[in-house]
Simulated scan of single mutants.
Amino acid sequence: MAAETASNRRHTAGALDIRNIIGALLGAYGVILLLMGIFGDTESDKTGDVNANLWAGIALVVVSVVFLTWARLRPVRVPEHVESPDDGGRPPGHQD
């Protein structure tokens, strides 16, 4: 694939893809809750003998992995160039 020409390559949104941002945030919160569930006080009397932090952390980490995998497998393609509208780039309804 090293013989790809510049016209065949496509740009992707990369780190600015919203799925990467959401996945990273959910992953960070998930890891924090996971660690609190493992090492923190379980407070089982408040949650009915369920370690809520642990289970919420696991769920958030799983959803984070799904978002990041989705962004990796189906990246957003950015067009090479975008043609400007005939009105000089002004938004609809704009008056001088």
Rank of each mutant, 00 (worst) to 15 (best):
W55Q: 06
G30Y: 08
L25E: 03
G88L: 01
D49A: 06
G23Q: 03
Q95N: 13
P92R: 10
A52S: 11
R77D: 10
V31L: 15
G14P: 02
G48H: 05
T42E: 14
S64K: 01
G89Q: 03
G57E: 02
D96S: 14
D45N: 08
A59C: 13
G40E: 00
S64H: 06
D86R: 13
V65C: 08
I18G: 01
R10M: 11
S64E: 00
T5Y: 03
N20L: 00
Y29D: 04
L26R: 06
V66P: 01
R90N: 14
I38G: 09
R72K: 15
F39Y: 13
M36W: 13
I38D: 02
N20R: 15
N20V: 10
N53K: 06
S64W: 04
D87T: 11
T47Y: 14
G57V: 04
I58Y: 03
I32S: 08
G14V: 05
G37D: 02
V50S: 07
V65A: 15
T69W: 07
M1S: 14
P85D: 15
G89C: 11
G93C: 09
P75H: 05
L73V: 15
V65T: 11
H81M: 08
L68A: 02
H81L: 12
M1C: 07
G88D: 06
R9N: 08
R90K: 15
D17M: 05
E4F: 10
V63W: 10
D96T: 07
E80D: 14
L34P: 10
Q95C: 10
V61P: 07
